[in-house]
Design a protein around this nucleic acid. Structure first.
Length: 339
DNA sequence: TTTCCCAATAGTTGGGAAGT
DNA sequence: ACTTCCCAACTATTGGGAAA
């Protein structure tokens, strides 16, 4: 038997043991018809089997496999790299037992009955880690890191709380960020954020696509179009975003859209206090906050400059782009210069 | 064609296992 | 004791086919 076949065999019996507790013993190797004979040990029973190792099981070799096993006294067992669900069904119909390296199996020696199908091939599992960093929750975590870079060294629990995400998600996102090179893990000496400027760019692209739409709660209108100039948001867990925030910071802009981020539980208070009426064509948009408002990302009653910048870019209004640039130079550039 | 539904897939959560 | 990793259960999203 070739070493690749032995590896395959080892992996397959490993999976079988993990899934069922059964073990397989080789009694004797063969050259003719099958590769080996032996037993399946279920703990209670020892079932004699004839083993045939096949890297690939496809329709065209099914008859040959079946024919081989008819020459053997023992029941046939195909050991394969991967049996897809369709092949699993075929083999079961033909009464051929099988196990594979993905953990799929069919063994029918009553009272022993095992039928596992649908496990994905090992290589498909290996390519699983997808971009968790730029999913909706991933973006919340990345935002927290961009706002407070030193947070990268905080315990996952603290990061989870600050970004209002689940603990397990932080681990997934961090794994992804490390793989992408935005976080370097220096072993005992903590973690470090890298290429923050590039990370910001990617966040700015993903935010309006992935996260912002989920935060939108609708459009509103106020009785007085200029109410926002003096309306206080403090004590309402609410913060100006987009145009208004830019205006308050630079006085360069006449806001076209009034953007407000508010903690979900406080939204109705905000609306009542300012007489905001639901109106699909209104100029006020209210979004939910996606960070821990206790975490002091915002100095005052405006959101963090990163978010202002993102809102301005996302608006698509060319007038806003100029102001966005000013915000970037004035508030962000110095923080994103070096790593 | 559009709308709706549903099943398959992808994403998220939270708490316990494992590691230090 | 505390942090990170893991995973099963739950939830959301997607996309493809049936119904309108």
């Amino acid at each position: 038997m070739k070493t690749t076949e032995i590896d395959l065999f080892d992996q397959a019996i490993d999976q079988l043991k993990r899934n069922t507790g059964f073990t397989i013993e080789i009694n004797q190797f063969h050259r003719q018809y099958v590769d080996a004979t032996g037993f399946i040990d279920t703990g209670a029973n020892r079932i004699p089997i004839a083993i045939d190792i096949k890297k690939l099981v496809i329709n065209s070799i099914l008859p040959a496999i079946a024919h081989q096993f008819t020459r053997m006294a023992e029941h046939g067992l195909v050991v394969a790299h991967y049996i897809n669900p369709l092949m699993a069904e075929r083999l079961k119909e033909m009464g051929i037992w099988f196990i594979d390296t993905a953990g799929n199996a069919y063994i029918n020696a009553l009272p022993i009955y095992v039928y596992i199908k649908g496990n994905k091939p090992p290589e498909a599992q290996a390519t699983k880690p997808t971009n968790r960093a730029f999913t909706p929750i991933g973006l919340k975590i990345v935002y927290a890191l961009l706002c407070r870079p030193e947070l990268v060294n905080a315990p996952y629990r603290e990061i989870a709380q600050t970004a209002t995400a689940a603990l397990g998600t932080v681990a997934l996102v961090f794994k992804d960020l490390i793989q992408l090179g935005y976080i370097v893990d220096m072993g005992g000496q903590g973690r470090r954020l890298k290429n923050r400027q590039k990370l910001l760019e990617r966040w700015l692209i993903a935010y309006p696509e992935q996260l912002r739409p989920k935060l939108e709660t609708g459009r509103y209108r106020a009785p007085d179009p200029n109410w926002w100039r003096i309306a206080p948001l403090h004590n309402l867990q609410a913060y100006w975003g987009g145009d208004v925030a830019a205006d308050k910071l630079t006085h360069y802009l006449k806001p076209a859209t009034i953007t407000i981020y508010v903690m979900e539980e406080w939204a109705s208070k905000l609306k009542v206090a300012n007489r905001l009426r639901k109106d699909p064509s209104g100029d006020i948009e209210i979004l939910n906050t996606f960070w821990d408002v206790e975490g002091e990302f915002n100095r005052t009653d405006v959101v963090h400059p990163i978010l202002i910048y993102a809102d301005l870019l996302a608006s698509g209004d060319p007038r806003n782009l100029e102001v966005a640039q000013i915000i970037y130079e004035q508030e962000l550039a110095e923080h994103f210069r070096e790593d």
